[in-house]
Simulated assay, not measured.
Amino acid sequence: MEKISEDVQKSLNIFLSEVKTKYESLATDYRSKQEESENQNTNEDLLLVSQDDLCRLIAQIQHQKTPPPKVKATKTMAPARATDALKEELKQTRQQLQNSLAELSYLKKHCETAVSECQQEKQDNIQLRQEVEVLSQQLSQQSEYCSGLGSACCTLLWRVSKNEDTIQSILIGSKIEEFLALVSSTLNTYVITYKLDWPDLNSEESQFVHALCGITTNIVASAFGREFLITSPQGRQLVDTYIVVLEEAPSGKSARLKNLILIALNNMSINQNGIKYLSSKRGIIKLLAWILQEKVATENQAFYFHTLRLIQCLISVESNLNMIHELEELPKHIMQHLQTYKNRLIREFAQEVSADIQNHIHRKQ
């Protein structure tokens, strides 16, 4: 718009210059004509001019004398309004630009703050990760130390607990209830943790758990220990845990642990209250039958003997209708297999248990 105004001003200046030049030229011509007319009057030589030419000349002179500002105002009015509008639009654009720049500056500061906080969080996360790794290593070391210490102590206690006098000393102490609860919770956690990835027998965890079960097995090997365990709430809870472990522990790899549990349950069945408590557990005969069927494929003689012995103890309980129904559902092919087993002791014991089962069923019918 400023360029357009300059062009209009320049054109007006040129136009005014031309008008002024023509005006001066006409004035000069007029004066020369007057001088000539005066000279002619003086010399009595007159020039005759028609009325029309004189009117036209007067009109031209009047026209030249008219000042040009009106022409300038009319011709520059529209460009001036356009210039004002553009100036206003330019002012608004500049204001919007300033607002945008201010907003950009704010967003930039906000972004820088966010980036700084993000970097700080990354550093904090790295530091926390390092601390977690250190704590994990310390926890692993402590776990290994505790497992090793527990394995060593419990293994020694397992050996010492073979003496019946030692069993009485253990049971008289004030920590036996806590010990039984510890054995129960440890077995549950052990089975849940390693059910799909059973550890090696030589690992510290395995030795620790086996030692715990061995101690309780030696405890129920004594009459005083059997009575104490079956009358203690923690002792009955441990028996329930033993049954769960027999059901949940994987086949094959957990053979040693299951064997210790079966020995403990057999020792418990010698006690009158113990055999009643075991026979009250629904599904225990089915569980033992499943263990027998499982060990048919592995040919584990210890399992056959302890399982058959426990079944024999359970069927000796009178007035147990649930036990009768479970005995009727006992798979016959398992007992038939054991009655023809290559080991004479297992074969004779299986024949004896099978006969006791049949007699028990017929007597109840």
Rank of each mutant, 00 (worst) to 15 (best):
L57C: 04
E36T: 10
S116W: 07
R94L: 09
A27D: 12
L107H: 11
Q40C: 11
S100T: 11
T83D: 04
N39Y: 08
Q95N: 12
P79R: 09
C111S: 13
H63M: 14
Q92F: 05
A102D: 03
L86S: 10
H110V: 09
Q34N: 12
L104S: 15
P79M: 03
R56G: 01
Q95P: 01
S100L: 00
P67R: 06
K91Y: 10
L104P: 01
D52M: 07
D45W: 02
Q60R: 15
D53C: 00
A82Y: 02
Q92K: 12
T21V: 02
L101V: 00
Q34T: 06
S50L: 07
Q119V: 11
S32W: 01
T28S: 09
K75S: 14
Y30S: 08
A73W: 12
C111T: 13
I61R: 10
S32I: 08
H110N: 12
Q120P: 05
L57N: 03
L57Q: 03
V115S: 01
T21P: 07
Y30Q: 10
A114C: 09
T113H: 11
H63W: 15
E103T: 00
E112T: 00
I58G: 06
L86I: 02
K72P: 03
L107V: 10
Q96K: 15
R81G: 00
N99F: 01
Q120D: 02
E36D: 12
L90Y: 12
K108F: 08
A102H: 02
S32L: 02
A73D: 14
K108C: 06
A80Y: 02
T83F: 00
K109A: 05
S105M: 00
K65R: 15
T21S: 05
Y106D: 12
N43G: 12
D53R: 00
T74K: 15
K87Q: 13
L46Y: 05
D84M: 15
A102Y: 06
L107R: 11
S116T: 06
Q120W: 01
L90A: 11
E89D: 13
E112V: 03
R56Y: 07
T21D: 09
E89R: 08
K70V: 03
A78Q: 14
Q64V: 01
K70I: 08
H110R: 14
V115A: 04
T76E: 07
N99E: 14
